[in-house]
Write a protein that binds this DNA or RNA. Structure first.
Length: 820
RNA sequence: GCGAGAGUGGCGGAAUUGGCAGACGCGCCGGCCUUAGGAGCCGGUGCCUUCGGGCGUGGGGGUUCGAAUCCCCCCUCUCGCACCA
């Protein structure tokens, strides 16, 4: 074998081979056990970045490894191709989003190919393709039929820069800013489409348990859904037939309620103050709160300046019958619970703060251990014993919660209640580049779903003004807007909002199973064959957005009887971020390392290996050019020794050194395999490097030139072992050495247990925990023999200075510790 | 504030049923080869040292024959959530 390691042409050659041989195209009738390996499909920005490289390298190593292990691996790829960047580019450059997206998809696809990642490209999906979004719309109709898609007016998050509404999940950070552009989000009352994800809140919690996901992601979802258990009950209003229903998690503190609070948006605010002296002040206060941005409203929380106003009305504490004042305050949210609370200053920090500020009474009803009737310096929020609570005195908080709830139930004024922090998913977007919502509004028939036969509702490609106006650009397109009512045939207009792109990505993994199906969303048998995804790989930034929505969709689709699984992703792996100079890579910081440069300067194999070697895949890492160079060095060392440039191979009998290097090869394989199974690619690669170093020692030793048979035996396991990580160079060497077939078609090499076993090991001799000697011993040495050897050691005798050891601890065969 | 995770050489990182700290790579130092070396090969590289050894895993205590690893207190950093009653 001769020739220079020309990685550019070698990599191109094998990439062509994988494409033409279709060896990673896979079908349901494949007799091998299935493995669904999936990377989160990318937004086609046009340029592959290092985060993609990391993601797809991890996915590709797994695909190739599992294939060698005898699985039929389904590994598809596609495009999350609706969304704002394409539309923003259109606003700037005038290029149509569809044209823009198609170009970028082609560009990214070729870059992914140059990474050496292999996919079943027949299954490619693209969310902006009508053949795909037809079925997104179809799902919307199914949701609508079952009442899971509904329209409602609600105060919603509005991004003034993107000129669209946002889901709660898309409002981030302590200031409440837009996930995309970082602009402070405001509130608006708009009629919008929602998906009723809250109906699945409990299931989304329950089914989390069995998933093999990072604990941290599970915890984030659990916190986001935010289940709490408590009690709802009515407060009577003297002089009114209305009652105010409140929610609390602390019914045990109900005797300490000294006032009640309504959210400013609460529907009873107006009626209760109408015609009273407080009416004008209350109206002014409510207006002030409502016009405030989220930032302003939150900033008042910071200072704990709880803004509120007395309504002049009262309510009755149902526990003790006392009349207490009714306030309106902006620390009570209309969107949680009932939008009204009972306030217990003694046992709630916020109520305590508010009571202090407004001079309201603070009455202790839960006694902490050691409390003897003094006033509180701060709210006591822990559990304790009920006091000043009539017949309930002496009960613990836990007992009290149950007892008070039952008491309210028996009086018909309340009941136990579970609440969730999670709110329904707002999916309307006032933008063009998204999936049209298949709904028609008819003056006579109202809100009418577009019949299935009329799908897809196509996005018009002509005559659209993209400039954001706060209304969907589709509203200006007469050809799109005006239509006929599917029910009565009369004039009607279309819904002009489009769907959140997270809707598109909530089911793409199902479509991959049967992506070319023209007649139905997918064939159930095919989906049931491949699902669930056995390994899902992607960034942790999707921990609550995409991953929660996809779980919700899967459950709904299962309830429709379309699939058998209720959870889409059995195992999840979240990779760390790639940084540079301690910061996030970004164009504005000018610290972007571009993959395409490295395909030319170091090769895809070196780039892949660097990503795998640099640290645990779940950790962030800092990009370092020197590191990639080291990987190229390793690959070139492999190339040279295989190429016969290090030493010439000879035919000769096997000696002890030959046997030893073969043993080491098997030990390396054993460790490498275990590491790869545990996603510990960094230590797997390190073991391979260590072995190559030994191989160089063996090949260059003075005693004898390298033996051909040994070398070939080693390469026949070393090359397949490395094939998933550095697929091009291993394929090329395999071919050049004249081995049979393709290295990627090899079964995973097996470890020879006889070669791995060690007969002799180095025993460490410690005195008082410090290493004093090392002695080579048989690996099946007994404790007694170890003890005798240790005590006979010169070094140990010196250290003991003639004293008898008090204790000798032997841990065969590796360690013995002598205690003087 | 609440929740989760992390702190190991000049750098990235190894080592977890408690058992040789620093594998592997980068960088650095030296040697060989060479007309030359920003190539390659070989060797060295935690700190201190009177060359015997001593000290070392954010800091302080503890358990243990033995602790990077387990327990307690403290410090620092990262991520997520943040009036959810």
């Amino acid at each position: 074998m001769t020739g220079k390691y020309d990685f550019v042409s070698i990599e191109e050659k094998w990439q062509r081979h994988w494409a033409e041989s279709r060896m990673y195209y896979i079908d349901e009738d494949d007799p091998r056990p299935k493995f669904y390996d999936l990377c989160m499909y990318p937004y086609p920005s046009g340029d592959l970045h290092m985060g993609h490289v990391r993601n797809y390298t991890l996915g590709d190593v797994l695909c190739r490894y599992k294939t060698m292990r005898g699985f039929a691996v389904l590994s598809p790829m596609g495009w999350d191709s609706f969304g704002l960047p394409a539309e923003n580019a259109a606003i700037k450059t005038g290029i149509h989003p569809a044209t823009y997206s198609r170009e970028r998809i082609e560009s990214m696809k070729s870059q992914i190919r140059r990474l050496g990642a292999v996919y079943d490209w027949r299954r490619e999906v693209s969310s902006f393709d009508p053949a795909y979004y037809k079925w997104t719309q179809w799902l919307f109709l199914k949701f609508f039929e079952s009442g899971l898609a509904y329209r409602d007016t609600a105060p919603v998050n509005w991004c003034p820069s993107c000129q669209t509404v946002l889901a709660n999940e898309q409002v981030q950070g302590e200031d409440g800013v837009c996930e995309r552009c970082g602009t402070a989000v405001t509130k608006r009352d708009l009629e919008q489409w929602f998906f009723a994800i809250t109906r699945y809140a409990q299931q989304l919690i329950d089914d989390l348990e069995d998933l093999q996901w990072p604990e941290r992601v599970k915890t984030m979802q659990l916190n986001w859904i935010g289940r709490s258990q408590g009690c709802e009950f009515d407060l009577e209003i003297p002089g009114s037939s209305e009652v105010i229903r409140v929610y609390t998690t602390r019914p045990d503190t109900v005797f300490g309620v000294t006032y009640a609070v309504l959210a400013p948006e609460h529907p009873l605010v107006g009626p209760l103050v109408a015609g009273t002296s407080a009416e004008a002040d209350v109206a002014r206060f409510v207006e002030e709160v409502r016009s405030a941005t989220e930032v302003e409203r939150l900033s008042t929380q910071r200072s704990l300046d709880k803004r509120g106003i007395d309504t002049g009305r009262t309510v009755v504490n149902p526990a003790n019958g006392r009349e207490i004042p009714l306030y309106i305050a902006d620390y009570v949210l209309m969107t949680y619970g009932t939008g009204a609370i009972m306030a217990v200053p003694a046992h709630d920090e916020r109520d305590f703060e508010f009571a202090k500020l407004h001079g309201l009474p603070i009455e202790v009803v839960i006694a902490a251990g050691g409390w003897s009737g003094e006033n509180l310096e701060e709210a006591f929020t822990g559990p304790g014993t009920m006091v000043n609570s009539g017949e309930f005195d002496g009960l613990s908080s836990d007992e009290g919660k149950v007892a008070v709830t039952e008491w309210f139930e028996s009086r018909g004024i309340g009941a136990a209640k579970t609440n969730f922090r999670l709110r329904d998913w707002l999916i309307s977007r006032q933008r063009y580049w998204g999936c049209p919502i298949p709904i028609v509004y008819c003056d006579g028939c109202g809100t009418v779903p577009v019949p299935e036969a009329d799908l897809p509702v196509l996005l018009p490609e002509e005559g659209v003004e993209f400039k954001p106006t706060g209304e969907s650009p589709l509203a200006d397109n007469e050809g799109f807007l005006s239509t006929h009512c599917p029910t009565c045939g009369g004039r009607a207009r279309r819904e002009t909002d489009t769907m959140d792109t997270f809707v598109d990505s909530s089911w793409y993994f199902l479509r991959y199973c049967d992506s070319q199906n023209q007649d139905e969303i997918f064939e159930r048998a095919k989906v049931d064959h491949w699902m669930p995804v056995d390994q899902y790989i992607g960034g942790v930034e999707h921990a609550i957005l995409h991953l929660l929505y996809a779980r919700f969709f899967t459950k709904v689709i299962a309830d429709m009887g379309l699939v058998g699984v209720r959870e889409p992703f059995s195992r999840l792996f979240t990779q760390g971020m790639v940084r540079k100079d301690g910061q996030k890579m970004s164009k504005s910081l000018g610290n972007v390392a571009t993959p395409t440069e490295y395909f030319v300067s170091h090769g895809a194999d070196a780039l892949r290996l660097y990503n795998l070697f640099v640290g645990p895949p779940s950790d962030d890492f800092d990009w370092n050019d020197r590191g990639v160079e080291g990987m190229l060095r390793f690959i070139q060392r492999l190339w040279r020794i295989a190429n016969g440039e290090v030493a010439e191979l000879v035919e000769r009998d096997e000696d002890e050194a030959d046997l030893e290097i073969l043993r080491e090869a098997h030990r390396t394989l054993e460790k490498f395999t275990a590491d790869i199974e545990g996603f510990a690619y960094n230590t797997a690669a390190a073991a391979a490097m260590e072995f190559l170093n030994s191989l160089y020692q063996w090949a260059q030793r003075d005693q004898a030139p390298p033996r051909r048979a040994t070398f070939e035996a080693i390469m026949s396991i070393f090359l397949p072992m490395l094939a998933p990580m550095i697929p091009h160079v291993t394929a090329e060497i395999w071919e050049r050495l004249g081995f049979d077939g393709d290295v990627h078609s090899c079964p995973w090499p097996s470890v020879d247990p006889d070669l791995v076993r060690r007969d002799r090991v180095v025993m460490v001799v410690q005195v008082k925990g410090k290493v004093r000697d090392r002695i080579e011993v048989d690996s099946d040495i007994s404790e007694d023999a170890m003890r005798d050897l240790a005590l006979a050691s010169e070094k140990v005798r010196e250290e003991l200075g003639g004293l008898e050891p008090t204790r000798v601890i032997a841990r065969p065969p590796k360690l013995v510790n002598v205690v003087p």
